[in-house]
């Protein structure tokens, strides 16, 4: 697929994130500062704004997507997300084509970069856990479609619901986080849902 594929998905992604904003803010408010929905909405509005200008080079296009989040927010989640996009951007620099067989490898570098930047480990109830689950699924079956990936992400959310969050601001409320969905995991799911072609 070419960058134009991504460009085609951006309007519905933005729409989906707009409609998820309240849910994400609410989840975040129970454990953090309650602005995760705002972070995602600001980022996706910026994505819409630069949609037409996205270059054909996947590397530079993904860099611009990363910047859409870093430009509009100082929040850690925005930076972590952008870090994953940047790591993928570096892999794809100078390439106009992307094949779904590359996804497993790209998610792998993204996951490593996000882990390194956020100093978080797998299993601490963060966005890293569903990213890792999706990556493993793609590795075992490169033909996995987006809908199946979203299912894997939902399973991870379910699996972690009753565990305590062990990093970030939410770790201060470890016990309180038990029984709550991690806002970052949910935001990741909403992102994937947003790019499923209609």
């Amino acid at each position: 697929m070419k960058v134009s594929w991504l460009q085609d998905q951006l309007p519905q992604l933005a729409e989906h994130l707009e409609s998820s904003a309240e849910e994400l803010n609410g989840l975040d408010a129970q454990l953090g500062d309650g602005d995760l929905g705002v972070t995602m909405v600001r980022g996706s509005r910026q994505l819409l704004e630069i949609r037409e200008e996205l270059p054909d080079d996947w590397g530079m296009a993904l860099l611009k997507c990363a910047q859409a989040f870093t430009k509009t927010s100082g929040s850690s989640y925005g930076t972590i997300l952008a870090t994953g996009l940047m790591a993928m951007a570096k892999q794809k620099k100078g390439q106009a084509e992307m094949d779904s067989s590359e996804w497993a490898g790209l998610l792998k570098v993204a996951l490593e970069a996000m882990q390194h930047r956020g100093k978080a480990k797998l299993g601490q109830k963060t966005v890293l856990d569903p990213v890792s689950a999706a990556q493993k699924k793609l590795e075992s079956d490169p033909e996995t479609g987006l809908l199946d990936l979203i299912e894997v992400v939902q399973q991870t959310i379910d699996e972690f619901r009753d565990k305590p969050c062990q990093i970030g601001r939410a770790r201060i409320f470890q016990d309180k986080s038990i029984g709550l969905d991690d806002p970052g995991m949910v935001a990741f799911k909403r992102l994937l849902e947003g790019i499923v072609p209609n």
Partner: peptide
Amino acid sequence: YGGDVMNFDMAGEQLEME
């Protein structure tokens, strides 16, 4: 500080690439 380190590293990476 965690947030500063994250954001500054990211900024450095972006400038290197761009």
